[in-house]
């Protein structure tokens, strides 16, 4: 049984600190080239197929911008 996950990022609240990227065990997320209205490179799923929905990124996020979904397939 495999786990598939996905995250939704509140891009306007994200400050692009990158702590979530450093703590992602599957190399799913990265900072985007685009910026939000405050000039921060927000986080996004660069490799969405890798995500297992482990919630590590959301747990360490200082601004609580990440929502995590997970399914068993």
């Amino acid at each position: 049984m495999a786990l598939k996950g996905a995250i939704v990022v509140d891009t306007e609240r994200c400050k692009g600190c990158g702590v979530c990227v450093a703590n992602c065990p599957t190399n799913t997320i990265a900072l985007a080239h685009e910026v939000n209205s405050r000039g921060y490179n927000f986080v996004h799923m660069a490799n969405p197929d890798n995500c297992t929905g482990c919630t590590n990124c959301a747990t360490v996020c200082p601004d609580a911008v990440i929502t995590v979904y997970r399914v068993k397939i």
């Binding site: 598939k4 996905a6 939704v8 929905g53 919630t55 747990t59 929502t67 995590v68 979904y69 997970r70």
Partner: peptide, 9 residues
């Protein structure tokens, strides 16, 4: 995947 029933965090 992004559906309310799959929400974990």
């Amino acid at each position: 995947i992004i559906k309310p029933e799959n929400l974990v965090y």
